[in-house]
Every structure is written in C-alpha cells, then in structure tokens.
Design a protein around this nucleic acid. Structure first.
Length: 498
RNA sequence: GGCCCGGUGGUCAAGCGGCUAAGACACCGCCCUUUCACGGCGGUAACACGGGUUCGAUUCCCGUCCGGGUCACCA
C-alpha cells in the first residue's frame, strides 16, 4: 500500500464532534454488562450531541453464530439505542464490519513492521496457555530476525503472525477517564499478536485501527480490558495517532444463588441476559433504567433521583458519575423498577402488555381481559407473575374447607356456610350484575347479618376463586366470573361445607 | 503466582478534610383494607483493619487484609 492509500483513509476521518461506538461480537445475545456498556456509550454521544456508531467485531471465525447480528440490531432498537453509522445504514468511514475491512488491518500491521514497532513471527501456534509459556516472549527468536530475512520467508509463503514489538525497558502510562492514570512497566507487557495466521486482526489491534480510522473520541469498554490498555498507547504512539479518551466501566457482578459467591455476571453461568429478562416479563424501560444505575449515579441535585427515561439520562449523564468499583446485579431491585414502571403505565397499555400473559391461563373468551388486567396492574411485579395469579378463572381449583377459616375475617366453616347460604339468594335476586350492584348487595347483606364486611366477603371470595390469595376481592371476582359461574361456584362451596 | 484495579449498611449508592454519614431496594413493624397487593408512616442496618499527614479524617498517603480483572493466533 502506498502513502496515498493511507492518506485517503485518514482523509475520511471526521473531526470536531464526539464520536463513540459500540462494537459487539455477534454472539447471539446481549449480556447485561454489554447492554450497560452500549448504553453508556450511547449516552456519552447523545449527551454531547455527537455520533454513535455500531461496528461488528467478527474477527473470530471460530465463533460465528448464525443470525447473531440481527439479535444485536433488534436489541439496540428495542432499547432505543439508535445509531448514526453502522453496517446497515452505512456512513463515511465504513465498512462497519471487521471481516470486510481485513485488507486494511494487514496494511496497517505491515506499516508497523516497517516502522519497527512490530515484527513477523513464524513460531508454532501455542495450543494452550501453558504452551505459550514455553519461552519468555522476549526470547522469541523471531523478534530479532533480520527484517530482510523475515520478509523473504513471508514472500516464500511461510505462515506467520505479526507481533507488536514492546520495548523491554521503561514504562507506559495511560489515562482513563474513570480510573485516572495507570502506569505499568513495559516488561510486564507481552509482544501481543496483532495479525493472526488467518490474516485477520486480533481484537486489540482491530480496535486501535478502527477506532482511529472511524474518528472515535471516547472508547467505552469493560474494565476487563484495563490491563491491555497500555499496549494500546504504544500502538497509537507507533502510528503517531492521537489517543482517544478511555472510559472503562467496572464489571457487573452477581451473587451465585447456590454458592453465594460473588462473581462476574455471565451467560455461561446461567445468569440472565437482556433477552432472558424480557422473556421473563421485565419491561425494556425498567431494565434500561436499572442498568443505567448499575455503575453510574447522578450527582448533586439529582443524587436522590432514580427514575429516568432514556432521553432524561442522555441529558444528565456524565462520565464523572461512573463508578470504579464493581456493582452487583440485584434482581430484587430490578423487580422494583419493573413494578413501578408497570404501575405507571396507562391502563390500556398495561392491558395490552398483560393480555398475552393472561391468556396463558385464562382461555375462556367470556372473561373480560381488560377487567382482569385492571386487577393485576398493582399486583404484579413482572408480567410472568400473571398466569399463576389468574389460573382460577378457567377452572375452579380443588381446595380444602380449611380455606374458609380465617381469624382476621372472623370466619370458619360454620360461619362460612351461613354466609354463603345468605349470599346466594341475595345475589341471584339482583336485577343487574355489575360492580356496584354486587358490591352494594353484599355490603347491605353484611349489615343485615350484623357481621363485618370481611366475614361475608371472605367465604364468597374463597368459594368463587378456590384459593386463598387472589388478585382483587370477592366483588371484583364475581363481576368477572359472571352471575351464573359465581353462583355455581358458591353452591359447590356450600356443598363442600356440608 | 506476577501485574493492574477496587473496598461507605445484605444490595445500588451520595459524600469529594469539619455532616446527628443522604436516598433507594430488600427486611421488620404500624395504618389503610373485601384476601393479596397498591399507598402512607416508622424502624433495624455502613465508612474493612493498622499506621501516618492534619487542629480535624469516610474523604489525602503508606502497609495489611479481602474482592475483582488480566496474563490466548477469544473478544
């Protein structure tokens, strides 16, 4: 590649605006940690009125997953994390898929070889971590190969990788917006591979090249990359490129439900991914809101605030508020956020969201789904709580008479029998069957019988539902069940009471 | 093990030399009530430890301990 080729690429780089990028590998699902990184990356760009790009890092040919890129698109869209440039929408610095940029990495790696900052290595591939420790990297015979000889072997078709030539002496300091200055001895750094035998770049190299060529100003990533960051500086320096602002985010931990140990959250251990959470009835807005607060907190006046929409987050997000210490994912708190979002929904919106879940156990068309949803809105924390709560509508459960005994309501089987005997004819005689008439009827009856409301309501509710805990009270349930079914169930209860 | 990074209640966290050390979740009470919820009110609970620096340390420095990360032709 000649000078002009490189110059043309450099000429495409936008300047003068904040540009961030989310660069996932297509693995087929979104980790909660990845989601948070994507979110923070997006927020930094949007807060600054800059650009947010999507780049697909698919350089690991051995781990390609069918359809995984679509999962990324869908997840990002679902979360509202819009991108200005990316594989599907294009942009000035494309292509945005790394395998489509392969010739580029090779050219830059060779440029580094010419500069003396990298070298060809012909050593056998290490089959395992242990193997790689056979000899100290600094003793790598290839490192000191005569450039002409190395080139000759390359030209002869001998397989090779290109390694970064790390100085043996001195130290490297890099700056991170969250962690501050970090200094390491160069002797601690290894001559990492830049270009693999298959001609594709390693993550560490592709990142540097792409981030520069795409004009990325803020590199946001997980803290697991913190220790490799100094090597990046050396690369940028060798190229003579401006170093972007690094923003490393601490890991998201989770307490293992079995061992109780705290470890990094991972799909491999069965920890929930974004998709899993949605499938379990969590709302996207709640997940995003919760995740935003896992490792970031608003400061000053906003310090006590917890509820934010995406746009509100974009307005107040600042790197200053990003935490250095790892945060534990707490499903209970996410559940609280979810419950709050659920309750804040317009009744119609909630009914629409709840319907598929209600229909999992309420299949009879006669029952009014929106009426059931109304009962559920304040009584479920996540949509998946629903089916179990409304399972008695379709079919009266088999239950024992002990349910009729409740101390607080002052009922037992004898009292319940009396109550049902009185309630059945009263309800049968009602001219209309609606919330108000059923309610007034039973309240009046309680007065006539000289008992507290609960004493009458309890057995009625137990009879029509067949379970101790129900969403809504006797009146609501009777209304939804309808007169015929309600009376039928009360007669069954009466029979049970003997 | 080497190197790097962390350490405020069980969890998320505010704090950025002087505070009775916020707030939220969870938990526990009480109220409301037609079960359960919702809602309202209240409560238990924290600066890992030891040295410094300073008139004064949760806050700054060092050490210890603990936790995490990383040492791949994976990202």
């Amino acid at each position: 590649m000649d000078q002009q080729w490189f110059a043309d690429l450099e000429a495409r780089i936008p300047h003068g605006e904040v540009r961030t990028r989310f660069a996932p590998s297509p693995t087929g699902y979104m980790h909660v940690g990845n989601l948070r990184t994507a979110l923070y990356t997006w927020l930094i760009a949007r807060h600054a009125g800059g650009k947010f790009l999507l780049r697909i890092e698919d350089t690991d040919q051995g781990r390609l997953v069918e359809g995984a890129v679509d999962v990324i698109y869908n997840t990002m869209r679902r979360c509202g994390l819009t991108w200005d440039e990316g594989p599907d929408v294009g942009g000035p610095v494309g292509p945005y898929v790394q395998t489509e940029r392969r010739s580029l990495y090779k050219a830059y790696a060779q440029l580094l070889v010419e500069k003396g900052a990298a070298y060809y290595c012909f050593c056998e591939k290490a089959e395992s971590k242990e193997d790689s420790g056979e000899f100290q990297r600094e003793d790598d015979p290839c490192r000191n190969l005569d450039p002409k000889e190395a080139q000759a072997r390359v030209d002869a078709g001998e397989p090779y990788v290109i390694r970064q030539r790390i100085p043996h002496e001195g130290h490297t300091t890099f700056h991170d917006a969250v962690y501050g200055d970090i200094t390491v001895e160069n002797s601690e750094l290894d001559d990492q591979i830049l270009l693999k035998r298959d001609g594709l770049p390693t993550y560490n190299f592709a990142n540097v090249v792409d981030d520069h060529l795409m004009g990325i100003t803020h590199v946001v990533r997980g803290a697991e990359y913190l220790s490799s960051a100094p090597k990046y500086n050396l690369l940028y320096e060798a190229f003579g490129w401006e170093i972007p602002t690094y923003v490393h985010c601490s890991s998201i931990m989770i307490q293992d439900s079995e061992t109780g140990a705290v470890r990094k959250m991972s799909k491999r251990h069965g920890d929930p991914s974004y998709e899993d959470l949605l499938a379990d009835g969590y709302l996207n807005e709640a997940v995003v809101n919760y995740v935003a607060l896992l490792g970031w907190a608003p400061r000053g006046e906003l310090a006590e605030r917890e509820f934010f929409t995406l746009d509100e987050l974009a307005a107040v997000f600042d790197i200053e508020g990003v935490s250095k210490s790892p945060a534990a994912f707490d499903i209970a708190k996410l559940t609280y956020f979810n419950a709050s979002y659920l309750r804040a929904m317009a009744p119609e919106a909630f009914a629409a969201a709840a319907e598929p879940w209600i229909r999992k156990s309420v299949t009879k068309p006669a029952f009014d789904v929106s009426a059931i949803a109304a009962l559920l809105q304040a009584r479920c924390e996540k949509l998946s709580d629903i089916p179990e709560k409304v399972d008695f509508f379709d079919k009266l459960p088999v239950y024992g008479v002990d349910l009729y005994t409740n101390k607080k309501s002052k009922t037992n089987t004898d009292v319940s029998r009396t109550m049902l005997k009185a309630a059945i004819p009263a309800l049968e005689a009602l001219p209309v069957w609606d919330q108000t008439s059923v309610h007034d009827c039973l309240i009046d009856l309680a007065v006539q019988l000289g008992v507290k409301n609960a004493t009458l309501m309890w057995p009625v509710r137990i009879a029509v539902a067949g379970k101790a805990v129900t969403p809504g009270g006797a009146v609501e349930l009777c209304c939804i069940l309808g007169r015929e079914e309600s009376i039928r169930r009360m007669l069954i209860g009466l029979a049970l009471l003997g």
